[in-house]
Design a protein around this nucleic acid. Structure first.
Lengths: 211, 211
DNA sequence: AGCATTGTTGATCGTGCGATCAACAAGAGG
DNA sequence: CCTCTTGTTGATCGCACGATCAACAATGCT
């Protein structure tokens, strides 16, 4: 054991300590899920008494909710950043589908799924979930609308289609969470499905350059 | 209050009592989720001491797992039954998509989503989840294969496509769990997506006769 | 009627949770 | 060097959980 020296924690500025706590919460959530976000768990990771965590947070529901938002918003930003480097709507939508199914973000997916059920009993979290879903939907919708404008796609209700694609991606990811074996060609099949939905020519959604 | 008479429970045969317990567990899970399946909760519903529930179950993980299986298997059977009344693969696939998105089974969806995360820490449940997912996948796969045989569809890997459709349906349902408002035309859009995936003509997947 | 069987109770143990707060001590300002 | 501010502790409360088990009582059998 190298990390239970039982010393008194060094005194830090409130801003610094608060940052430590939210960071510890982020790590715990990614490793063990939102359910593992307990006062004692977070405190132990920071190396601090449990009361201190409570002192920096109004209550645990709030910490769970904000931790969810932090993790998920970071992912949205990251992927949206990748998107902007692609030339046209078809490439962007292809990259989107491909990136989101590459299984490199299963930890975030697990948090999404957990949040869906925890949200039933944690209203701040539920609000956060809706907010973050809206953000994702907007990402999809703007790509679909771009494609509509250029004529690459042909969609009458781009908002609805965006919701639909988002839901499909979420479902396939959740499935991968439980059945990590399963299917390999998920990206290709989903691309074909999305092509059908946006009215694009089959095969027009190109995947990323591979990694 | 009409239901806390504090009398001693009438003595029943083990089979009967066991049935009461599993039935109570089913109801609780549908109303309040798998997390609400506690010894005391189930016991209160049956009108019995908590110890008795423990006496009839090896442990709570097992009760959670079997309750999940009961609820979900019943749904699979029910929908599979509806399917058999439809003439061809296109009608069957259309009905499948349409029925699963009609929001009349959101309670079951909630249980699915909960099981996905609880399965991470409850191995019997995880096994049950995989089993029930396989059952659903088989339902989809047999429809896809039928369509392949009649020429209505054109799919090279029907198992993969079946997984894919299942995942998409699950995702859209999970979405409806949180964003019950959202989109209305889900069935139509998904139908178009599925048509793209199975290589069917656009519009060939007909919905149910409406209800 | 008496007895053995067995379904049932409810108190109890150990654990973990969120929350609270008086007491403590590190560090900055005078 | 002393003092006051404030970051920090850790014991404590109330609660809920799963699990256990000696004691109890209803029922059926002889």
């Amino acid at each position: 054991m190298s990390s239970t020296p039982q010393k008194r924690a060094v005194r830090k500025s409130p801003a610094e300590r608060a940052a430590e706590i939210t960071e510890a919460a982020r790590e715990i959530a990614l490793e063990a899920g939102l359910t593992a976000l307990t006062l004692r768990n977070v405190a132990a990771r920071v190396g601090v008494a449990s009361g201190l965590v409570a002192h920096y947070q109004p209550n645990m529901d709030a910490l769970v909710s904000s931790t969810f938002a932090t993790i998920v918003a970071a992912e949205t930003q990251e992927v949206a950043g990748l998107l902007s480097q692609r030339p046209g709507p078809s490439e962007r939508l292809g990259l989107l589908v491909d990136t989101l199914l590459d299984n490199s973000r299963l930890d975030v997916t697990a948090i999404w799924v957990e949040a869906w059920t925890l949200g039933r009993r944690n209203e701040p979290l539920a609000a956060s979930v809706r907010e973050q879903m809206d953000a994702w939907q907007k990402v999809f919708q703007s790509v679909v609308e771009d494609g509509n404008a250029t004529g690459a796609f042909n969609v009458s209700d781009s908002a609805a289609v965006a919701w639909q694609i988002l839901g499909m991606v979420d479902g396939l990811n959740a499935q991968a969470l439980v059945r990590w074996d399963g299917v390999n060609d998920r990206g290709t099949h989903l691309a074909r499905a999305v092509e059908g939905m946006v009215g694009a020519a089959p095969g027009s959604l190109v995947a990323g350059p591979g990694s």
